[in-house]
């Protein structure tokens, strides 16, 4: 842990410092720090049970961390301490959107309605917190039309325009994944957190996902933080990879650096008990060499 430097980043959108999360006697995350650069795609990887989703839940306010500080700095300057905010304010004010490992769409609402729900706070203001809209003021109608345009834009990017009026629950799995990302983008986020966006996708759907993520980065300038097991996705699109094992960071750097890190290889492939010493020796030797 002490050996791994946090990569120095010029303009971090997200700064996680000394994050710890304890569930009873279990230390799910232990003194975890990393930074995500603005406009980059940062990947968080690690074996099953490493604590990746717990990190996400801490960032998006679904868990309150036991210790540590999570700072989000928006492009315009304001900073938010996410660990102090309730979950919905993190999305509303700090502009952090997320998707879920098990897709959480509003399955009984149409695809378009899903995207309109995501623009709730903007529309609430435009409708004068329902009162003016209920009385038929024109301001709300204009905002409603704009919100449909935003939804249309993201449906087009996610290649779902022809399914706009179908129930979200009726979509095939890959489309549901992209819809969930499009819905998160409709909140106008500074940072988009994706929890295993490629899980369960076939290779073609994976490619479509990669395209969507690249489009998001280039078009909207939204920074992306993603958890992923699919290495083809991670290595191809991410600029920066952080590796987590047993709640601790074991590697941090470019995809190339992480790919060749023996600690990462050991964590992923596993080693026999009697080889542990040997591996540690190799690792220490490697680090010495690298420095």
């Amino acid at each position: 842990m002490t050996g791994i430097e946090t990569a120095m980043i010029q303009d971090p959108v997200l700064k996680v410092e000394h994050l710890s999360m304890r569930f009873g006697g279990l230390m799910a995350i232990n003194d975890f720090s990393f930074e995500a650069a603005r406009g980059n795609i940062t990947a968080l990887i690690g074996p099953n049970g490493a604590g990746k989703t717990t990190v996400f839940n801490c960032i998006t306010g679904f868990y309150k961390p036991t210790m540590g500080m999570i700072t989000l700095r928006q492009k315009a300057g304001p900073e938010f301490l996410l660990e102090r905010m309730p979950d919905f304010e993190i999305t509303r004010d700090a502009k952090v959107a997320r998707t879920f490992q098990n897709i959480r769409l509003f399955s009984g609402l149409t695809v378009l309605e899903n995207l309109l729900v995501a623009q709730h706070n903007m529309l609430m203001k435009a409708s004068g917190y329902t009162v003016l809209g209920l009385l038929g003021f024109s301001g709300y109608k204009k905002a409603a039309a704009e919100s449909v345009d935003i939804a249309r834009h993201w449906l087009d990017r996610a290649n779902l325009l022809n399914r706009a009026d179908d129930p979200a629950g009726d979509l095939p799995y890959g489309d549901q994944r992209r819809l969930e990302i499009a819905r998160a983008m409709c909140t106008g986020p500074e940072l988009l957190c994706l929890d295993e966006p490629a899980a369960g996708l076939n290779p073609r759907e994976s490619l479509a996902l990669n395209d969507l993520l690249r489009t998001i980065r280039t078009e909207s300038g939204t920074s992306i933080l993603l958890i992923e097991h699919d290495m083809s996705v991670v290595m191809e699109i991410s600029d920066h990879v952080v590796v987590l094992e047993y709640g601790q960071k074991i590697s941090d750097g470019t995809p190339n650096h992480v790919q060749n890190d023996p600690k990462v290889i050991a964590a992923y492939l596993g080693v026999e008990d009697d080889e542990v010493e040997e591996v540690i020796a190799v690792v220490e030797g490697h680090e010495g060499g690298a420095l």
């Binding site: 999305t91 959107a97 997320r98 879920f100 959480r104 729900v117 623009q119 709730h120 329902t130 998160a184």
Partner: peptide, 22 residues
């Protein structure tokens, strides 16, 4: 209106609602 859609979204999935800033 947004409030009505938020009600229906709440019926469908409360956690997703919170993740969308509602």
């Amino acid at each position: 209106m947004p409030i009505g859609r938020a009600w229906e979204a709440l019926r469908e999935d409360e956690i997703a609602c919170r993740a969308l800033g509602i």
